[in-house]
Simulated assay, not measured.
Amino acid sequence: MEQQRILPTGATGRGLTVDHLIDVFAAYDPRPGDIRGDHDLNGFRPKPDNREAAVLIPIVKRKDGLSVLFTKRTDHLKNHPGQISFPGGHTEEEDESAEHAALRETEEEVGLPHDYIQVIGRLNDYVTRTGFRVTPVIGLVEAPYPTDPDEHEVAEVFEVPLSFLMDKANHQKCSRIFMGVKRYFWAMPYEDYFIWGATAGMLKNLYDVLEEKGE
């Protein structure tokens, strides 16, 4: 199993600096009623009784630019096998906050300790078609960092340049037929990785926040 892969970061995008991200999220206050999700592109109302979850959007600080850490799920999992995801999962009773849940899940899945991560904010909650209300937590990760992926859940850990993900030219609006209905979703393919669905949708939300704040 390939546990970690660092892909070329390329040029740093305009404004994509640590200081800029910290400033943006110090001033950004997600409104509870402003929910993002799969419904943005598909015109349905999110259900009110979604299960709570949290993910970490880990932005890695490297000398040649910022990058985003992803996991590739193993093929044998019941839910979303083989898909590209952020580390995260269900919010448990012992979790004090979404931030606590995201950091706990990241350490459990990836083996990345929380003391390598500086939480700087969160995005609006994201509702999935499968019934989850996910809080995306933004964290800056010190590199180099240790990893010890859970072999049952994680096939690979890798990074993609933040400048690529925050380039609107790389945002694709795609569709497929699901149970006889055409469903639309965002995708951001990078090299051999097809980043799509809720993961790409949260990245699109991050892009929108940075665009609004002058990125």
Rank of each mutant, 00 (worst) to 15 (best):
L56R: 10
D95W: 05
I177H: 11
G197R: 07
P30G: 14
A26F: 04
T130W: 05
Y28I: 02
G89T: 11
T135E: 11
L165S: 08
L206F: 00
V24K: 07
L162Q: 02
L66V: 09
E159D: 14
P149W: 00
A198N: 14
R51Q: 13
Y193M: 09
L123R: 04
D167E: 13
G43L: 03
E105Y: 01
F25N: 14
L103P: 00
S67W: 04
L203N: 01
V160E: 00
E52T: 09
T106N: 02
W196G: 05
V181Q: 13
L16D: 08
F185L: 07
K63D: 15
P58R: 11
G111T: 06
F44I: 08
D208G: 01
I84K: 01
M1S: 11
Y145P: 03
S97P: 12
P146C: 03
W186Y: 14
F158P: 15
S175Y: 04
T128L: 10
L103C: 01
I57Q: 00
V119G: 07
G111R: 08
T147R: 03
E215P: 00
P161I: 11
K47H: 08
L66T: 12
E191Y: 10
R45S: 10
G111M: 07
P136V: 03
P48F: 03
D75K: 12
G65I: 02
I117K: 01
R5T: 15
D125V: 04
D23S: 15
E215Q: 10
R5W: 07
V137N: 11
V137M: 15
H171P: 10
D125Y: 07
P8C: 06
F44H: 00
L140F: 10
E2M: 08
K204F: 05
R62C: 06
N124T: 09
A53S: 15
A27F: 07
D148F: 04
F164C: 05
I6A: 10
I22L: 13
P81H: 14
A155R: 10
R36H: 11
K204C: 10
V209I: 13
D49C: 04
A200G: 13
Y126G: 01
T128N: 01
H39G: 00
H90W: 06
A187F: 04
G82D: 04
A27G: 11
H39L: 05
G139V: 02
